[in-house]
Nucleic acid binder design. Sequence first.
DNA 1: TATTGTTATACTCTATAACTATA
DNA 2: TATAGTTATAGAGTATAACAATA
Lengths: 150, 150
Amino acid sequence: MSYANNVGISDDERTLAARLRLAVVRLNRRLRAQRGAAQAATLTQLSALSTLHRHGPMSPGELAVKERVQPPSMTRVISALEEVGFVTRTPHPTDGRQIVIAVTEQGSGYVEAEVSARERWLDERLAELTDAERTLLCRAAEIIDRMAGS
Amino acid sequence: MSYANNVGISDDERTLAARLRLAVVRLNRRLRAQRGAAQAATLTQLSALSTLHRHGPMSPGELAVKERVQPPSMTRVISALEEVGFVTRTPHPTDGRQIVIAVTEQGSGYVEAEVSARERWLDERLAELTDAERTLLCRAAEIIDRMAGS
DNA sequence: TATTGTTATACTCTATAACTATA
DNA sequence: TATAGTTATAGAGTATAACAATA
């Protein structure tokens, strides 16, 4: 099988938006699949934990904004992280409605040590590229992150 | 709040793998959120339909390999696409175990017309960039797709 | 016995709507 | 009344395990 419908249309002729979308969807899929059995946190949890670790304690609302998810989604992520002891929920000192999420020592250790282990697959793929390609991806990551609104 | 744990660690000092992962996860999230109410296909369905449209009729197994998902996941995607009339399932001419998935005229029209409408959000973001940045993203998309195994 | 596709089941990720408590 | 967080619910996206049909 596999006789093309539209032989004349190469990848180069598709729009940048189409190509970037496909590339991002597919890499996301692969990254998600790289979960080892012993992994304590999922991709989403890791992202939130990483942000907390980088920016310090904050409220669930702030974290939801930074991660670009809705508050109920973040509630879930926080609950999961709290359950494995990676973050703590403490009452806000002045505003009784708010709570403060902070990374524990254990969570900190996880981010610092396990994150890189988790990225081994991607590291290996990146190692196969040329220096120029890596430099290019580096700048692309900045642009993509900016577009995604971070 | 928001006093950093590790003030000295800027984005530039994080590994390329870490940055690329965060960028991809976040853009994927945003892209998924851009679903209009009238959209007939989800992001995953669109990706599969797009591949079928580009490469022509093939078996569910082949499509699963191309899309880098497991066969049961593809079964689901195909069923959804068949339900809205975008693809057909026909018996394989010689191998009774296989079936052939083909894009219908309706599906073809969807890919050609609606896909670009769907990418409006991304197109708008891309329009805000400089020419140099777009060129860079274009090459990055190629590299990312290659790494993802397409 | 091996291969292809499907069904059954379950878990992650995310959203919207509705609720509770506090300001 | 407005804000912060949570609970309830639902749907997308994916996987593994078990099954049926065919080679």
